[in-house]
Simulated assay, not measured.
Amino acid sequence: MTASSHRALPDGRLAAGAARLAMRHRGRYSVETVQRLIADSYEQPAAHAHVRTHLVVLAERFAAERLDAPAHAENPAEPGGRPRVLFVCSHNAGRSQMAAALLAHRAGDAVIASSAGTHPSGTVDPHVVQALTEAGIALDEVYPKPLSDEIVQAADIVITMGCGDACPVVPGHRYLDWPVPDPEGAPIAVVRSIRDALDARITELLDTLPGN
C-alpha cells in the first residue's frame, strides 16, 4: 500500500485494517474497493459519533461485515448452518442493540446477530447498556451503525422495530416487525421492561430457527 493510498483514508490508522481486509479478500475485491469501503465505514459513524476512541477498530469490523455480506448472499446458509439475523430500528441506539445482544447471548455461536439504524445516533443509550449489564451482557465497543444494502442482502431474517418502510425489502428474505417501545429517554425501569419484552420475543424466535 502506497503513501498516496494512506492519504486517501480519512484516518491514517485505517491503513493497517485496510491491508488486512485486502489480504483476506484477495481475488474477490481490489485494494481500492476495500479502501473505499473502510473509509466509508469510518466516515458514516464518525459523522454522528459522540465518542471517537474506538472508531478505527470499529470501522474495520463494520467494513469486514459489509465485505463478507455479498458472499453470504450468494451462498446462503445451508441446512444446519448459522442463520444471520439483522435487527433494525431508527437510531440503532436502543432496541436493535438490545435485541442483537440478547440473541447473541442466548444463541452463542449458533446464530450471527447484528444490528443497524436507518438514522443512527451518536452513541448507545446508557440505560440500554445498564439494563444489559444487569442481565450479564456486556456491550463492549459498540456504536450505532448505518443500515447498508450489503448487510440487508446478507441477512436471512430482518427484524424491524419502528423504522417503517425505511428498511429495504429483498425478495426471498424473512421479515418480522416487532412493535417494541423506543427506550430513548426512558427511565431505567422502563428500559428493563423493554429488555424483558425483547428477551421473550428472542425465545420465540429461537424456537423457529434451524436446530432448535
Rank of each mutant, 00 (worst) to 15 (best):
I157T: 09
I38Y: 04
L103T: 02
L205S: 00
E65V: 03
A16H: 15
V191Y: 00
S96H: 05
R84G: 04
L139W: 05
A47C: 07
I157F: 06
G136N: 12
L102G: 01
A135T: 08
V85T: 07
P70W: 07
A69T: 07
A64Q: 14
G27Y: 10
P76H: 13
G117A: 01
T33S: 15
P126C: 10
V190R: 10
S4K: 09
T208A: 08
A73V: 10
A104G: 15
E65P: 01
I151N: 00
A64E: 14
A135Y: 06
E134C: 06
H48M: 08
R174D: 06
L206V: 11
R106L: 09
V169E: 08
P144R: 01
V191Q: 00
H54A: 06
E74D: 14
E74F: 10
A18N: 10
Y143C: 08
A15Y: 08
D68K: 05
G17S: 14
A39N: 09
M161Y: 01
A135K: 11
I38T: 06
H50T: 14
G162I: 05
R106Y: 03
P210D: 04
F62N: 02
R66A: 05
N212V: 09
V111N: 03
H25P: 04
P181F: 06
T133R: 12
L37E: 03
A19C: 09
L198E: 00
R192P: 01
D109I: 12
V142G: 00
H119T: 03
I202Y: 00
A131C: 11
W178S: 03
M23C: 10
D109A: 15
A110K: 06
L132K: 00
E184A: 14
A3T: 12
L58F: 10
T53Y: 11
V56D: 01
G17R: 04
T160K: 04
D165C: 06
P45F: 01
G162K: 04
I151Y: 02
A131I: 04
P179K: 11
L206Y: 01
A77Y: 12
Q153Y: 03
L147E: 01
A104I: 05
M1Y: 13
R24M: 12
A63S: 07
R13N: 12
D68L: 06
E204L: 09
S5I: 09
A186T: 10
L55T: 09
D149M: 14
P45A: 05
D11G: 11
G122E: 02
A155R: 00
S90G: 15
V34H: 02
A131G: 06
I137H: 01
E65A: 10
L14T: 03
P187E: 15
G27A: 12
V31T: 13
E32D: 15
R195H: 09
R106E: 12
L139E: 02
G80W: 14
G172V: 04
L205P: 00
A138C: 11
S90Q: 15
T208L: 09
R61K: 14
R26F: 15
A110W: 04
R7L: 13
Y143T: 10
Q97K: 07
P76T: 11
V170T: 08
Q35Y: 12
Q130M: 08
A64G: 10
A93P: 02
E32G: 13
V31Y: 07
S41W: 01
A154G: 11
L209A: 05
I202C: 03
P45R: 01
G162E: 07
V142S: 02
D40E: 15
Q44W: 03
